[in-house]
Simulated assay, not measured.
Amino acid sequence: MSETKSIEALRATLGNDHPPSELAPLVEAMWWEAKGDWKRAHEIAQDIDTRDAAWVHAYLHRREGDDWNAGYWYRQAGRPHAQIPMDEEWREITAELLTH
């Protein structure tokens, strides 16, 4: 099992300059967002055409404060527009992505 198969293990790597090499691209996007690099996270998410990527994309636009754009991406992901705190949604998305 990978070292980063849990939220806690992943968060423990946030002090590093680069994400662990074994991360799936969408988990890497969430890692960059947690580091405060929204642009890098967005670049990763927008280049992937899956429902999970749309969910990450929605989260990123919600984090940005662009609710209209976030709403579009939540619909593409087949998910309701999140109303929970941002950190809680980060954990929810990342935990699900880590199970894939």
Rank of each mutant, 00 (worst) to 15 (best):
Ser2Glu: 15
Thr4Val: 15
Lys5Ala: 14
Lys5Gln: 11
Ser6Gln: 04
Ile7Met: 12
Ile7Trp: 13
Ile7Lys: 12
Ala9Leu: 04
Ala12Met: 03
Ala12Cys: 03
Thr13Gly: 05
Leu14Cys: 11
Leu14Glu: 07
Asn16Tyr: 15
Asn16Cys: 12
Pro19Met: 07
Pro19Asn: 07
Pro20Trp: 11
Ser21His: 11
Ala24Thr: 06
Ala24Asp: 12
Ala24Leu: 15
Leu26Gly: 00
Leu26Glu: 00
Ala29Tyr: 02
Met30Asp: 03
Met30Val: 12
Trp31Glu: 08
Ala34Pro: 02
Ala34Ser: 11
Lys35Ser: 13
Lys35Tyr: 11
Trp38Ala: 02
Trp38Thr: 09
Trp38Arg: 06
Arg40Ala: 08
His42Tyr: 15
His42Ala: 12
His42Glu: 08
His42Val: 06
His42Ser: 08
Glu43Phe: 05
Ala45Ile: 03
Ala45Asn: 01
Gln46Tyr: 01
Gln46Phe: 06
Asp49Ala: 10
Asp49Met: 06
Asp49Thr: 05
Asp49Lys: 13
Arg51Asp: 00
Arg51His: 02
Asp52Ser: 02
Ala53Asp: 01
Ala54Phe: 01
Ala54Met: 00
Ala54Trp: 00
Ala54Cys: 05
Trp55Ile: 00
Val56Cys: 03
Tyr59Phe: 15
Leu60Ile: 04
Leu60Phe: 05
His61Ser: 06
Glu64Lys: 11
Gly65Tyr: 10
Asp66Asn: 09
Asp66Val: 13
Asp67Asn: 10
Ala70Leu: 01
Tyr72His: 08
Trp73Tyr: 14
Tyr74Ala: 02
Tyr74Cys: 02
Arg75Gly: 04
Arg75Asn: 09
Gln76Lys: 06
Ala77Phe: 01
Ala77Val: 03
Gly78Tyr: 09
Gly78Ser: 13
Arg79Ala: 15
Arg79Asp: 07
Pro80Leu: 12
Pro80Cys: 11
His81Ile: 10
Ala82Gln: 06
Gln83Ser: 10
Ile84Arg: 14
Pro85Met: 15
Met86Ala: 14
Met86Asp: 13
Met86Asn: 11
Asp87Lys: 11
Glu88Pro: 03
Arg91Ala: 14
Arg91Asn: 06
Glu92Lys: 10
Glu92Arg: 06
Glu92Phe: 04
Thr94Ala: 04
Thr94Ser: 04
Thr94Asn: 02
Leu97Val: 10
Leu97Trp: 01
Leu98Lys: 01
Thr99Trp: 02
His100Tyr: 11
